[in-house]
Every structure is written in structure tokens, then in C-alpha cells.
Design a binder for these strands. Structure first.
Length: 291
DNA sequence: GGATCACCTTC
DNA sequence: AAGGTGATC
């Protein structure tokens, strides 16, 4: 369709290198971005269709649907993290004494932790158990196109948790959700019946919010930590998945440590911004750590 | 408590 | 085997 996207606008608060740009949007924090070409992505966040592109001078530009400019700009400032002092975050990480972490940061110097809508983040990571990123994206895309509110140009909003109460488990299974369908259906019912306000968790401390999330079926420590890190911007969350177990084994000598033990080590070793460190380690291992 | 296994489906 | 969780022993 002609003219369905606004003119490109400069996003002034982030000037990433190309690797950091791609890894931030499409490195497993979010499952809604599809590449248009080597330098740009299109996706839908809440009810905002968005495009982001990277230019040679490290400038990032964005575009939305005409009429949504104001809302889109506000959303992006949360999503990409305006006024966050990443320099200060890096400074607290132990890269001075941790040469592997230093190497990971140098590979993705402008990597950011996204600030996604909480409900979308929870749904995404409820889909993530023993799935690869491409598969999670496919599941999310299917449920979006079949059950999400239609937006411009064949794009759809992700179903809300209220929407999900009306979607049968079998319909979710038909979206390739597998055994995750039951968890998601039950979580939706629980949210509705107990009148749970997911956004209220953001004002709670990390441990309390984590306990609350772990009450949902299908949410254990790893899914809770991912939701807290990418959906509530709680940077002390340190998700431990198979990649992080591998990292800790190979680069930190933690042989045969349990996920719980590794999570404890991570919080002690990396500190208040352990989740940011985790994302560097994760990104590096996936791209450069050989099998 | 810690270890083991089923759970859907696909690459 | 793939970005886990929950039930069972």
C-alpha cells in the first residue's frame, strides 16, 4: 500500500554499531521483528506497527503508521531505552577483571536490553521452552495473525491476555504451541479470574515480582527472569538457559553446576546489572562460541 | 533435596 | 536436540 508508512525519523538516543543493532532487536529478547533487508526491520509492538533501520553513520531511524507518531515515539523511548545511562551500567560490570566478559562487550558495544510490554514478553517466553528463536517467532506470528486485532496492511496486534481467555487450547496447539498451549490457556484464565494486573509487578521488587510470575503454569525461574529482564527492565534478573550453562562451563569453569547454582554465581559475580552481562555472554556464545 | 522423564513438534 | 517446567521417586 502506498503511503502507509510515515517518513523516517531519527532516533537520537541510540547510535549502535550494526551487530549491536541486529542483536538487540533479533537476538532473542523479542520475537516480533522481521528483517526487511540487511539494515532494517519491521514489527508490531502493542498496536503500533513500526519500522527501524540502521544507517552507515550509526544513525537509527524509525517509521510508523501516519497518525501514530506521538504514541510511537513514546513507546520507542521505553522500548529502546531513552535516557538510560548504559555507560554507567557497563562501568559496574566486572570486565576489568573478567577478560571473557570484556571480549563479549567489545563484540556488541552498543547492545541494549529492550523494555517490552510486559504482557507480550510473558507470552513470548511462555512459548520458549525447548524452542529455537525462529520457531518461537513462527508461533507468535501465527497466533498474532489468527487471533490478534487487525491493524494496517495485514498486520495484527498480538492477542492480549484477555483475548487469550477466549482462545481454546486446541486453537493454540494449531499455532504450533505444542504442550505450551495448556500453560498459556491456564495462565490467561488465572489472570482473568484473579483479576491480576501484570503491570503492577513493575513497582514490586525483583524477588516479589519473580515469585508472582512463578505462580503461573509454565513459568519457572528462567521464564520469570526473561520476563523480568526484557519486560520489566529489572536488570538484576539473570536468566540461566542452556546457553548460559554452556558459557559458565566453558569460560568460567563451572562444571556440572545446576541452573540454580549458576544463577546465584551470576548475581554475585556480575552484580546489580547481571542481566545485561548475561545478554553479552549469550550473544557472543551464539555467534562465536563454537559447538 | 537432587535426578530423571514426559510433554508437542519440527529442523 | 531445541532458550524449560512440573511431576515423581
Amino acid at each position: 500500500m502506498i503511503d502507509s508508512w510515515s517518513p523516517w525519523q531519527i532516533y537520537t538516543d541510540w547510535q549502535p554499531d550494526l551487530n549491536s543493532f541486529k542483536e538487540t532487536l533479533d537476538g532473542g529478547q523479542a520475537f516480533c521483528w522481521n528483517s526487511i533487508d540487511e539494515y532494517s526491520y519491521q514489527g508490531v509492538v502493542l498496536n503500533f506497527p513500526l519500522r527501524l533501520r540502521w544507517l552507515e553513520n550509526k544513525q537509527v531511524e524509525w517509521s510508523c503508521i501516519p497518525g501514530q507518531n506521538e504514541g510511537a515515539e513514546k513507546l520507542l523511548s521505553t522500548y529502546l531505552g531513552t535516557n538510560k545511562d548504559y555507560r554507567a551500567y557497563y562501568d559496574t560490570l566486572p570486565w576489568r577483571s573478567d577478560s571473557h566478559l570484556k571480549r563479549c562487550i567489545e563484540a556488541y558495544p552498543d547492545l541494549r536490553i529492550l523494555g517490552q510490554p510486559d504482557g507480550e514478553t510473558l507470552l513470548g517466553f511462555l512459548c520458549s521452552a525447548t524452542k529455537q528463536i525462529v520457531q518461537i517467532k513462527e508461533m507468535i506470528q501465527l497466533v498474532r495473525s489468527r487471533f490478534g486485532r487487525p491493524l494496517e496492511d495485514q498486520m495484527n496486534q498480538l492477542p492480549t491476555w484477555a483475548d487469550l481467555t477466549t482462545i481454546e487450547e486446541s486453537a493454540l496447539r494449531a499455532c504450533k504451541f505444542g504442550f505450551r498451549a495448556a500453560n498459556i490457556h491456564k495462565a490467561a484464565i488465572k489472570i482473568a479470574e484473579e483479576d491480576i494486573d501484570l503491570s503492577a509487578l513493575s513497582s514490586q521488587p525483583y524477588e516479589e515480582a519473580k515469585d508472582a510470575l512463578c505462580q503461573f503454569p509454565g513459568v519457572g525461574e528462567k521464564v520469570a527472569d526473561c520476563t523480568l529482564l526484557f519486560g520489566y527492565h529489572k536488570l538484576e534478573a539473570f536468566p540461566v538457559d542452556t546457553w548460559i550453562l554452556k558459557v559458565m562451563n566453558r569460560h568460567y569453569g563451572l562444571d556440572d553446576w545446576s541452573p540454580k547454582q549458576v544463577a546465584h554465581f551470576g548475581r554475585i559475580h556480575f552484580g546489580s546489572y547481571a542481566g545485561l552481562a548475561q545478554q553479552f555472554l549469550f550473544a557472543w556464545e551464539r555467534s562465536f562460541g563454537s559447538k
